[in-house]
């Protein structure tokens, strides 16, 4: 009986096996830069256009602002508490099939976006669960002992409480400041710190873009560039926005090795506020140049729906991942308002 069953199973496996292998060798197609369709009997390796996802979701990061746990001091000062945990042992898929040892604040590169209003008291409980020393160094105004340079926090559970008043208004980076600094930054220990003015900015569809690079083979040259870590992500996952709606992008350049980066927007120009410290824009342009940790705020609105690229106009960077698409849809609500205004 057992013999019979095993025979049946054996034969069915043999009978089914060719079907499996047939399914595998079915020709697949992919589209090239120039739109040509290529057929292959093998596998497709296309991080550019093929829709793919990895561990980290840049779409979720894009509009995710952390305001912390809010409480109030007796004098009315708002206190915002954050817990940030550093780790340095995570292997992350940074582009389809490419695995890289990222060092992270709260498990992601970039770390969480910390957002507060000018004058708020920030309390950041920093826990270092890594194996090396790490710190958090904020750009901005704070006492020397809160600068995260001369107070390295030991690994395997070392702690430090960063406490300072949020300021000045603008968009700033924070990053680990342990030597060798370049190593700690390129592995991913950085994030964005936004300080809002007391009088709120105009409502807008707000997003964060950290321009970064990945040197996956440690030759002090970036193998990948990106907006928000994952190369080409916003190309195969376009960012959906609406016509006639104010878009505000907080841009921070964290690229190492290459002295500059830049940001070019298609079919539009943006108002640019360097470092976001001034409430009056300095430029109206479609191209800004950013040096290391240089950052600012961009504001723009699209009048026409459709697909618009945004990318580094240093084309090497865009062809290695720092490129994306805004997919602009007709904004029915705004249009009605305009119609009302028109009549």
């Amino acid at each position: 009986m057992i013999l019979l069953i095993s025979l049946v199973i054996g034969f069915s496996v043999i009978a089914l096996f060719p079907t499996f292998s047939d399914a595998q060798s079915e020709p697949k197609t992919f589209v090239t830069h120039s739109g040509a369709v290529v057929q292959t009997s093998g596998e497709i390796i296309d991080p550019l256009y093929a829709v793919s996802t990895v561990d980290f979701d840049p779409m979720e990061y894009l509009r995710n602002f952390n305001y912390g746990q809010v409480s109030e001091l007796p004098d009315g000062t708002v206190v915002r508490e954050f817990t940030i945990i550093a780790e340095d042992d995570k292997i992350m898929e940074v582009s389809p099939g490419v695995f890289y040892n990222v060092w992270t604040f709260n498990g992601t590169v970039p770390g969480p976006t910390i957002r507060a209003t000018e004058g708020d008291l920030l309390r950041i409980n920093f826990i270092n669960n890594g194996s090396k020393e790490h710190t958090m160094h904020f750009h901005g105004i704070h006492p020397a002992e809160m600068d995260g340079v001369f107070e390295p926090v030991g690994g395997n559970g070392g702690r430090f409480l960063y406490e300072f008043e949020a300021g000045p208004v603008g968009v700033h980076p924070y990053h680990c400041h342990v030597m060798p600094l370049e190593e700690h930054i390129v592995h991913g220990l950085y994030g964005v710190f936004i300080v809002d003015p007391k009088e709120e900015r105009q409502p807008a569809d707000e997003m964060i873009m950290v321009l970064n690079g990945l040197d996956t083979d440690f030759d002090t040259e970036n193998n990948f560039y990106a907006a928000n870590t994952i190369p080409f992500y916003y190309q195969h996952h376009p960012i959906q926005i609406n016509t006639n709606e104010l878009i505000r992008v907080y841009v921070v350049n964290m690229v190492e090795f290459d002295p500059i980066n830049n940001f070019h927007l298609h079919g539009n120009l943006y108002k640019y506020y360097p470092t976001g410290t001034d409430l009056v824009p300095s430029f109206y342009t479609d191209m800004i140049t950013l040096s290391q940790t240089e950052r600012g705020i961009m504001e723009f609105e699209y009048n026409y729906p459709g697909k618009y690229l945004f990318h580094a106009h240093k084309v090497e960077f865009s062809e290695k991942g720092w490129v994306g698409i805004f997919l602009v849809s007709e904004n029915s609500k705004k249009n009605t308002q305009e119609l009302v205004r028109g009549t």
Partner: peptide, 21 residues
């Protein structure tokens, strides 16, 4: 090993690997 990406002149390109990666 696994072949995961191809480039021409250090610019990433979509590609196919045959028979597999």
């Amino acid at each position: 090993i696994e072949v995961v990406m191809a480039d021409v002149n250090d610019r990433i390109q979509p590609a196919a690997v045959e028979p597999d990666r």
